[in-house]
């Protein structure tokens, strides 16, 4: 059973993937996200940190046995158990499919849309409109897939659900207001099911769905 | 042992990952990349294709048993064997780490630099210069890691080597001229070792390293 420390800044959706996975597997995970254990921008630029995690990125995982790992998908996978990784070769492949899907299809448009509403990026009307269209396409694919399914892979929560749900966390909280998400009821049903699992709740707390689409915060 | 068909356009570095993995595992893979088996832009927009592969993207894999998979990392993983996936939990996690590294750290700057030289995109001087700097940083990380290692994970080829090498294929062929790659000799040593493995050669053929950095192809 894995045991170690996850270095991250607070409220990092990438770290949530690993934290939720650890809830399912029982891996013992200490979170180092605030001073003195970890100060983002300082600790991750120190020679000691960079010798273990050469990119200086977080989340970064160090096992109590000294095993070091970066890249959130790898950490989440390591802290999982076989049940949520996918217990057959086909299930495991499908899990990886949705993990890749989250990174390549959801994160770019989700970030492009959400970041300006958080005031951490300049607003660009064209970029936002394009991001909305891309996210609609992504939600349509998910909605169709979840038409007859409770979870993304198999009949129980897997790393696919954890990863995709975490990648949709900011969109669902910030911009996917009721009228926008209305055409994708299966996705919302699935998302609400996920975030209400005890293992998700232990990490995310209460997740309140967007009531009104946030706009650019200057 | 997996057996199926990989739909792709020809010379697709993403498809190469899966094809090389299949060479290692012995999975029987038919490549559908040209007419009449597959015409990129037509076949992947057909209702039949989209019902199996809703994003319409390639590579896409259909097993002889009907099992369908998209996202190149998932396909490559499925067509691998346990040896190249990583035979211990830690090795498997490290493999996924480098696979994520390739997607998040290599592909964006590699695409920004190489696409204009292939005539795929317009040249943008600032984007190209930024891409060069990012790729230098990435190569430095790899060079340090490979200082005392022959392969990225463990003592033999893994999916990590296959994925990272395929993501560096266009850069090494097109833009990483001798003077640019001179500070990263371990990376070039490792890359040349990989592409000269019989399993790589069977898919890639002879890989000729860049002699002179390609410029924008209008």
């Amino acid at each position: 059973m894995a045991a170690g420390t996850l270095y991250t800044y607070p409220e990092n959706w990438r770290a949530f993937k690993a934290q939720i996975a650890a809830q399912y597997s029982g891996a013992r995970l200490k979170i180092a996200s605030t001073s003195p254990a970890f100060t983002f921008g300082q600790t991750n630029r120190s020679p000691a940190f960079l010798s273990n995690f050469p990119l200086g990125k977080v989340p970064a995982y160090q096992g109590d046995d000294g095993f070091c790992l970066f890249e959130s998908n790898a950490i989440a996978h390591y802290l999982s158990n076989d049940a949520i990784r996918g217990s057959t070769p086909q299930a495991a492949a499908r899990v990886l499919q949705w993990v890749s899907f989250a990174d390549s299809e959801i994160i770019p448009p989700a970030s492009a849309w959400v970041f300006p509403t958080l005031g951490i990026m300049q607003f660009n009307k064209q970029a936002t409109e394009q991001a909305k269209e891309e996210l609609k396409r992504v939600l349509a694919v998910l909605n169709q897939h979840l038409n007859t399914r409770t979870f993304l892979v198999g009949e129980r929560i897997s790393l696919a659900d954890i990863t995709v749900a975490c990648s949709l966390l900011w969109p669902y909280k910030q911009v996917l207001e009721p009228s926008f998400r209305q055409p994708y009821p299966n996705v919302t049903r699935w998302f609400v099911t996920c975030v209400n699992q005890p293992q998700f709740k232990a990490v995310l707390g209460e997740v309140k769905l967007c009531e009104k689409m946030a706009q650019f915060d200057a | 042992m997996a057996a199926g068909t990989l739909y792709t356009y020809p010379e697709n570095w993403r498809a190469f990952k899966a094809q090389i993995a299949a060479q290692y595992s012995g999975a029987r893979l038919k490549i559908a990349s040209t007419s009449p088996a597959f015409t990129f832009g037509q076949t992947n927009r057909s209702p039949a294709f989209l019902s199996n592969f809703p994003l319409g993207k390639v590579p896409a894999y259909q097993g002889d048993d009907g099992f369908c998979l998209f996202e190149s990392n998932a396909i490559a993983h499925y067509l691998s064997n346990d040896a190249i996936r990583g035979s211990t939990p830690q090795a498997a996690a490290r493999v996924l780490q480098w696979v994520s590294f390739a997607d998040s750290e290599i592909i964006p700057p590699a695409s920004a630099w190489v696409f204009p030289t292939l005539g795929i995109m317009q040249f943008n001087k600032q984007a190209t210069e930024q891409a060069k700097e990012e790729l230098k940083r990435v190569l430095a990380v790899l060079n340090q890691h490979l200082n005392t290692r022959t392969f990225l994970v463990g003592e033999r080829i893994s999916l990590a080597d296959i994925t990272v090498a395929c993501s560096l294929l266009w850069p090494y062929k097109q833009v990483l001229e001798p003077s640019f790659r001179q500070p990263y000799p371990n990376v070039t040593r490792w890359f040349v070792t990989c592409v000269n493995q019989p399993q790589f050669k069977a898919v890639l053929g002879e890989v000729k390293l860049c002699e002179k950095m390609a410029q924008f192809d209008a």
């Binding site: 990092n12 770019p108 970030s111 970041f115 | 356009y9 015409t39 990129f40």
Partner: peptide
């Protein structure tokens, strides 16, 4: 938290590259 998020490396342009690649290879395939 927002400071960390602001420093995340996101490939915002990815769809533009995907589109260019798709268009190019569709052309290559006639």
């Amino acid at each position: 938290a927002l400071q960390g998020l602001a420093q995340e490396k996101i490939w915002f342009d990815k769809s533009r590259y995907d589109e260019a690649e798709r268009s190019f290879y569709e052309g290559e395939n006639g």
